[in-house]
Amino acid sequence: MTTAASHAHGVHFGRRDVQNVAMGAGAITLLVGALGFVPGITAAYGDLAFIGPDSHAMFLGVFQVSMLLNIVHLIVGAVGLTMARTYSGARSFLLWSGVLYVALGIYGFAVGTASAANVFALNLADNWAFAALGLVMMACSWLFTRHAPDET
């Protein structure tokens, strides 16, 4: 007797793998955006500014955040949860939010931490994390859809 439920390859809980990955990415991003507003999880919470490098609040004591950056995470997370409802939406979410996060990482490297152009209040840890996260999301958009048939 087996305990494994029979299911089609790449389909779990009635959703395809790419949808589950997009749902997870959206939920985590939404959670990070919300936790960025929680004192204690965000160190120096009193220094949280809406925009710019003068926001010295540190999410998990490592990542510099601003209210604007937290709002971006909340929006990306909500979009991810919404788009994960369909196969093509999930794939598009992972691809384009990956592009967004890579661009955000590159932007952070380009403007530097002390520049007035650093409107999201990014530090070096943010830049590397966004670049890596974006690449992983883009890879997932391909890896979890390369053998799946087109949605009808």
Rank of each mutant, 00 (worst) to 15 (best):
S55N: 08
S55W: 04
S55Q: 05
H56S: 04
A57H: 09
A57P: 05
M58V: 07
F59Q: 02
F59L: 13
L60Q: 10
L60H: 06
G61E: 10
G61K: 14
G61A: 09
V62H: 13
F63H: 14
F63V: 10
F63C: 08
F63Y: 15
Q64A: 08
Q64I: 10
Q64S: 11
V65M: 11
V65K: 08
V65F: 08
V65P: 00
S66W: 00
M67Q: 14
L68K: 08
L68N: 12
L68H: 12
L69I: 11
L69F: 13
N70G: 12
N70C: 06
N70V: 04
N70A: 08
N70D: 08
I71A: 15
I71S: 11
V72N: 13
V72I: 12
H73V: 04
L74F: 09
L74R: 08
L74H: 06
L74K: 05
I75R: 11
I75F: 15
V76Y: 07
A78E: 05
A78Q: 05
A78M: 11
A78K: 07
A78V: 13
V79P: 00
G80L: 04
G80D: 02
G80H: 02
L81Y: 09
L81M: 15
T82Y: 15
T82A: 15
M83Q: 07
A84Q: 11
A84C: 09
R85N: 10
T86P: 01
T86R: 02
T86H: 01
T86F: 00
Y87W: 04
Y87K: 11
Y87A: 01
S88H: 07
G89C: 07
G89N: 05
G89S: 09
G89V: 03
A90M: 03
R91N: 07
R91H: 02
R91P: 01
S92T: 11
S92G: 05
S92Y: 04
F93H: 05
F93K: 03
F93T: 06
L94D: 03
L94W: 05
L94N: 02
L94E: 01
L95C: 01
L95S: 03
L95Y: 07
L95N: 06
W96C: 01
W96R: 07
W96P: 00
W96F: 13
S97Q: 12
S97W: 04
S97Y: 05
S97C: 06
S97G: 00
S97N: 10
S97H: 03
S97P: 00
G98C: 06
G98T: 06
V99D: 05
V99I: 12
L100H: 03
L100G: 12
L100D: 09
Y101W: 15
V102G: 02
V102T: 06
V102H: 03
A103I: 02
L104G: 10
L104M: 13
G105F: 00
I106N: 01
I106S: 04
